[in-house]
Design a binder for these strands. Structure first.
Length: 296
DNA sequence: AAAACTTGCAACCGCGCTTCT
DNA sequence: CAGAAGCGCGGTTGCAAGTTT
């Protein structure tokens, strides 16, 4: 802490101000939490419950602000916090909810049990925004969500399935809620039809017409709160989308690359349009997670 | 092998809203 | 009703770990 303050004079003055504000002359700790501090905080919350964080910190004998204690508890120590990578379903849900609500991280997190607003915010800033930049898209745009949903997510799901010891049978598609079911004959036929139709615009309008195919409950259910189950059409379309064969993805991408504008001086929108999954950008995006080479 | 660079994420900060006194 | 305290949110920073050169 002192080293950090020494490196930044503004921090020094801020720290002094905070010291003056504190009635208690005891110097407050900052930076990473120790195991002992975690234990003290956890025990104190077990005894007194959450809330009144300042007094809780004092009661626990922690040289931390109440704010810091609250943050540590909510983002790290709370028992129901889910650790590890976000599932494809969670990632897609984040994209969709962000397109709806913007940077309302806590609101988004409320729909992903076990995930914190901080975690989602970090995910968004480090992964999503980066990939959106590479695609020259708005990260909250429907177009970007469609790209993720149609090409990134199926591969991610497929890769996860391949990595798991008990791989799912070919006829099994994954729902957004994590459950699986087999494709019906109708769904398989749709998948084939889509596979045969490699125009990206057709794909987009058929599979992912923006929010138009969302009815009153556009988002998947997580746990038992907030969202109704998605419509049958959602289910059908998404599962068909997930179930497309890798050769179909390749065909789609080839077609998408071919649709890039041919004008010498394209407009801005045309630039964005033409960069849409163009060779280099697509490679950047998918190579990022080693997905593009997957199953090639 | 080591320096430089990048990435991911825990933690901090300021601000605004709500509740309490 | 006003000021203080508590709380929660979104933005930002700092650093350890990983990767590249």
């Amino acid at each position: 802490m002192k080293a950090a303050i020494a490196a930044d004079p503004s921090k020094e003055s801020r720290a002094k101000e905070e010291e003056e504000e504190e009635e208690d002359p005891v110097e407050l700790r900052r930076g990473p939490w120790t195991v002992e501090e975690d234990g003290l905080l956890t025990y104190s919350i077990a005894c007194h419950g959450e809330g009144h964080w300042n007094s809780l910190a004092k009661a626990a004998g922690l040289k931390r602000t109440g704010k810091s204690c609250r943050l540590r508890w909510l983002n790290y120590l709370k028992p129901d916090i889910k650790r590890g990578n976000l599932t494809p379903q969670e990632q897609l849900l984040i994209l969709e909810l962000h397109s709806k609500w913007g940077n309302r991280w806590s609101k988004i997190a409320a729909n992903l049990p076990g995930r914190t607003d901080n975690e989602i915010k970090n995910y968004w800033r480090t992964r999503v925004q980066k990939q959106a930049r590479q695609l020259n898209m708005e990260s909250s745009s429907q177009r970007f969500i469609d790209a993720i949903r149609c090409f990134y997510m199926p591969r991610l799901v497929e890769k996860e399935q391949n990595n798991s010891s008990c791989s799912l049978p070919n006829s099994t598609a994954m729902n957004l809620d994590g459950s699986t079911y087999s494709l019906t004959t109708h769904q398989t036929a749709m998948a084939q039809q889509i596979g045969n139709n490699s125009s990206p615009s057709n794909l987009s309008s058929t599979l992912l017409p923006g929010t138009s195919y969302h009815q009153t409950s556009p988002y998947p259910t997580f746990g038992e709160t907030v969202y109704d189950t998605r419509t049958k059409m959602d289910s059908l379309l998404l599962d068909v989308c997930y179930h497309m064969d890798s050769s179909d993805y390749d065909a789609e991408l080839t077609a998408m690359s071919a649709t890039r504008g041919s004008d010498d001086q394209p407009s801005d929108s045309q630039v964005a349009e033409s960069n849409w999954l163009g060779d280099e950008i697509a490679d950047d995006m998918w190579n990022l997670d080693d997905l593009w080479q997957f199953k090639k």
